[in-house]
Simulated scan of single mutants.
Amino acid sequence: MMTTIICTSLFLTACSSEKESEKSSENTTFKKAVEQGKLALAKGDVEDALASFELAENENPQDANTKKYVEQLQQVNHVDNLIEEKEYEQAVKKANQTMEKYTLFSPVQKELSDLKKTAESKQKEIKKETTKTNTTPKTQTTTTQTTPQKENLYASYMNKATLIGQNFDEAAYAIDGERQDSFNPMLKAFDTSYKQWDALLNEIYGTLKSRLSSSEFTVLRDVQRNWIKERNHNAGSASAYSEYAPEIAYTESLAASTRERCYALLEQYRETLR
């Protein structure tokens, strides 16, 4: 009887410990996703911010602020998409409607205001070009049309990726983690590595945005948003299960995932970038 009681007690303790571990992991993923979303929003990366907050909402559906961020960023993303599609008048209209309907978070308000200014600026450029065309006298001239050559960026991006690996990744992994006072240097090194890869990823993504057709880019954008969620989730899991340095594990995971994504896009769109 005593043996049965002890075994049952150990089993229940193990189950309880496992549940607590799962809750801790979910909580860490939520917090990190919110943090990543705010950082992305500060950089003006609406898609990254939206994907991060959607992940946070999935981890903690009861959090009211997260729900608001997702709802507001969906509206901002809509405005951004309209600008991409050169629907500038509709973009300005949508921005105004969103500002009237929602009490926006300060960083969301700033991003939406910036997008509105961009749309208004594009509208003015179009009107200016139209006015110039209508007032310029037409003359009979024969011109030779030349098709501008696209710059071959595949090799350039591959070279940048190699340099990031040599100059930043290798430096981060070369630090001896068992050495005293190595925590801050390691954290800084992996954070720098992640920022370098993130900058390259944004550069590649921006080029693809200009070179792909509207339908092709829509597919890429949806895949990219799902990848951002997976990247943040994996980083949160790495942090939750790191016994000694969760902050380093989180940042190292971000850097590794972003590095892999850069190479994946370069190979997938090799011909498009050439």
Results as ranks from 00 to 15, higher is better:
residue 136 T to H: 06
residue 119 A to W: 05
residue 80 D to S: 15
residue 65 N to F: 10
residue 114 D to E: 15
residue 92 V to G: 10
residue 99 M to P: 01
residue 128 K to N: 13
residue 109 Q to S: 12
residue 128 K to C: 12
residue 89 E to Q: 15
residue 133 T to L: 13
residue 67 K to W: 03
residue 79 V to P: 01
residue 76 V to I: 01
residue 106 S to P: 12
residue 92 V to S: 05
residue 70 V to N: 00
residue 64 A to V: 10
residue 105 F to D: 03
residue 134 N to A: 13
residue 95 A to V: 02
residue 104 L to Q: 05
residue 101 K to W: 03
residue 113 S to V: 08
residue 60 N to E: 05
residue 74 Q to G: 08
residue 118 T to I: 10
residue 65 N to G: 12
residue 88 Y to T: 09
residue 107 P to Y: 04
residue 69 Y to C: 04
residue 109 Q to W: 12
residue 103 T to I: 12
residue 65 N to T: 14
residue 96 N to G: 13
residue 121 S to Q: 15
residue 137 P to W: 06
residue 94 K to S: 03
residue 139 T to I: 14
residue 130 T to D: 13
residue 128 K to Y: 15
residue 67 K to C: 01
residue 79 V to A: 08
residue 85 E to P: 04
residue 119 A to T: 06
residue 112 L to R: 04
residue 122 K to P: 02
residue 115 L to Q: 04
residue 113 S to H: 11
residue 94 K to G: 02
residue 104 L to W: 02
residue 133 T to R: 12
residue 75 Q to H: 10
residue 122 K to I: 12
residue 70 V to T: 01
residue 113 S to L: 14
residue 112 L to Y: 03
residue 134 N to K: 08
residue 92 V to H: 08
residue 118 T to G: 03
residue 84 E to W: 12
residue 107 P to S: 05
residue 119 A to P: 02
residue 118 T to W: 07
residue 90 Q to M: 06
residue 123 Q to N: 13
residue 138 K to A: 11
residue 70 V to A: 00
residue 80 D to I: 07
residue 108 V to K: 00
residue 77 N to V: 07
residue 69 Y to G: 02
